[in-house]
């Protein structure tokens, strides 16, 4: 996470003079949206005060918080590089003050500062590693859940370092999933385990009587009794 701050630091120190002229101050009220997912990615932000929540929507349309950023951190750095639409939404938690750097101004600054372009490279590679680690962790948890090793999966999820808020958010979602799966499975097991044995007693008596009341059966019982007493002698 240190690299997120370092881009801001470099921008604010090394490119200070030229930066001041292009940075634009943005004031947000509590809950106010900075940008929405799929909006054009045309700017980068440095948080001066307050907190910014990064969120998206899951398949059910429920909000899912991916990260919470605080003063000194930056957001939208990918947009500066590739200009792609926003991959998530951002809104303020409480009042917040940010400074905005437009993509076109940034590209011009990078052009003139080798230190800044190096910082961008570092940031991007850091993010790529981070994503790979993310996927590996998720894969590991999925394998544990698939194998029914819920206790181990839970212990593993609990171990997620709290400094990585995005991962903590995903870990929470997985934790909920493990609990739900486990609960459903236990419920089903109980239902199956309590396999009811229902015997129609009327039909049972009727069937037994049909067999027992025949001459053959009566005769057989007598003959077998004789046989048994003979073999015991």
């Amino acid at each position: 996470m240190a690299n997120r701050e370092s881009l801001a630091k470099i921008l604010l120190t090394e490119a200070d003079a030229s930066l001041q002229s292009v940075l634009e101050v943005v004031h947000l009220e509590d809950g106010q949206v900075l940008f929405n997912r799929d909006d054009p990615g045309d700017a980068f932000y440095i948080i001066d005060s307050g907190q910014i929540r990064i969120f998206t929507f899951d398949e059910a349309g429920e909000e899912l918080t991916l990260n919470t950023l605080k003063a000194g951190e930056t957001l939208g750095e990918l947009a500066l590089v590739d200009g792609q639409p926003r991959s998530a939404s951002a809104s303020a938690i409480g009042p917040a003050v940010l400074r905005r750097l437009r993509r076109e101004d940034f590209l011009e600054m990078v052009h003139n500062s080798p230190a800044l372009s190096q910082a961008v490279f570092r940031l991007l590679s850091q993010r790529a590693r981070h994503m790979t680690e993310y996927i590996e962790r998720l894969g590991h948890w999925a394998r544990l859940v698939a194998a029914g090793q819920y206790t181990q999966a839970m212990a593993n999820i609990e171990n997620v370092e709290s400094s990585d808020r995005a991962l903590v958010a995903v870990a929470d979602a997985v934790k909920q999933m493990v609990r739900a799966v486990k609960e459903r499975e236990e419920k089903l097991r109980k239902e199956v385990a309590q396999l009811r044995i229902e015997i129609d007693e009327e039909r049972r008596k009727l069937r037994v009587a049909e067999i027992v009341d025949t001459d053959y059966f009566q005769d057989l019982t007598k003959r077998v009794r004789n046989l048994r007493s003979q073999s015991e002698e």
């Binding site: 396999l195 044995i197 229902e198 015997i199 129609d200 039909r203 049972r204 069937r207 037994v208 067999i211 027992v212 059966f217 057989l220 019982t221 077998v224 009794r225 048994r228």
Partner: peptide, 21 residues
């Protein structure tokens, strides 16, 4: 087998076998 039809049939068989001592 653990199914209702076998349970019912087995109940009859057990009763008849007991009558046959």
């Amino acid at each position: 087998r653990p199914d209702q039809q076998d349970f019912q049939g087995t109940a009859v068989t057990v009763d008849v076998s007991r009558k046959l001592e």
